[in-house]
């Protein structure tokens, strides 16, 4: 089975307010899928429905082929969930918190102990095993949350805003953990509004806005769809002239060319055309001092996209 999460016209209404609106989402086995959208977009509501923790108003969900409203125990046994606010019993130790979860999952003691050790190892908390959670930093709690998930050896992990509130170092460490999990073949669905961090780990991204999924695809695909350009090439040349700029504009697939200052020209393109740009520059009599390229960041796509959406709406 390659499609591990499938929703069909999934809808959640709170009174008249539509929090999730006919959502059709497919997550494939082994991928990291990012649910991106501003606050209030409906990401958390979607996640809660996938886990069977909130009932959908209409539509259907299949998780690993099971229906979370009818077979919640099976679904919850195979799906790990890291909520947007991860809390632990502060007066208990890391181990005591984890053994409670292991017992709720029906694991026998020795097996539970084995899994707890290996989970703590994976998230780098072994030496904190017998410390009260009240002494943990936000980042450590977040990692303990991941350890808790690993205990049930899930096929799918769902994380709601996992990097929110972490310092840059903590966020980086956390993204590293996500990569490790992915390498083990676990499917990951994560939600966020912090885009540049998520861009670094997601295979595919769904842009979420007012309960609707507006766009789905890889970061590169989204760039092309939204902007028609996903690559930015910077040309360093000591003598920027209007002729050179004109010549560069003629390069196929160059979308936008402008001089940033007297020595730098920016070329926006739909694909990697560094070679053509260099050739054109030299043919036009320019000197090439340097050439660099930046793939479009999701941040920009996102900002631009939602700007456009607002614009259309207005």
């Amino acid at each position: 089975m390659s499609e591990v999460i499938v929703t069909k016209d999934l809808t959640k209404k709170y009174g008249d307010f539509v929090a999730v609106d006919h959502l059709n989402l497919i997550v494939h086995k082994g991928e990291v899928f990012g649910l991106l959208g501003p606050n209030g977009a409906g990401k958390t509501t979607t996640i809660l429905m996938i886990l069977g923790l909130t009932e959908p108003t209409s539509g259907s969900i299949r998780v690993l082929g099971f229906d979370p409203t009818r077979q919640p125990l099976t679904v919850k046994a195979h799906v790990g969930y890291l909520p947007d606010q991860v809390g632990f019993y502060d007066e208990l130790t890391a181990y005591e918190n984890l053994i409670y979860i292991a017992k709720l999952n029906g694991l026998p003691r020795e097996e539970a102990d084995r899994r707890i050790e290996s989970a703590l190892q994976k998230v780098n908390l072994v030496e904190m095993r017998d410390k009260a959670v009240s002494t943990f930093s936000r980042g450590m709690r977040q990692r303990l949350g991941v350890a808790e998930i690993l205990i049930k050896q899930p096929q799918i992990i769902i994380m709601d805003e996992p990097t929110q509130g972490l310092d840059p170092e903590g966020a980086r460490e956390f993204l590293e953990i996500i990569r490790t999990l992915r390498a083990e073949g676990i499917t990951i669905l994560l939600s966020s509004h912090l885009l540049h961090q998520v861009q670094a780990v997601c295979d595919r991204v769904g842009l979420f806005h007012r309960g609707k999924m507006m766009l789905v695809g890889t970061v590169d695909e989204l760039g092309r769809k939204v902007l028609g350009k996903a690559f930015r090439i910077y040309v360093e040349t000591p003598n920027t002239t209007p002729e050179i700029i004109e010549a560069l504009k003629q390069v196929p697939e160059a979308v936008n060319v402008r001089a940033l200052n007297t020595t730098t020209i920016e070329v926006e393109a739909t694909s990697d055309i560094r070679h053509e740009v260099a050739k054109t520059l030299i043919t036009a009599g320019g000197q090439l001092r340097g050439l660099s390229m930046e793939a479009q960041s999701l941040d920009e796509i996102y900002a631009q996209y939602f700007q456009e959406v607002e614009h259309v709406r207005a």
Partner: peptide, 14 residues
């Protein structure tokens, strides 16, 4: 208030 409820209810229990 301790934010443990959703974590506990995400385990295979009712």
């Amino acid at each position: 208030n301790r934010k443990t409820l959703s974590r506990i209810l995400a385990q295979p229990i009712y």
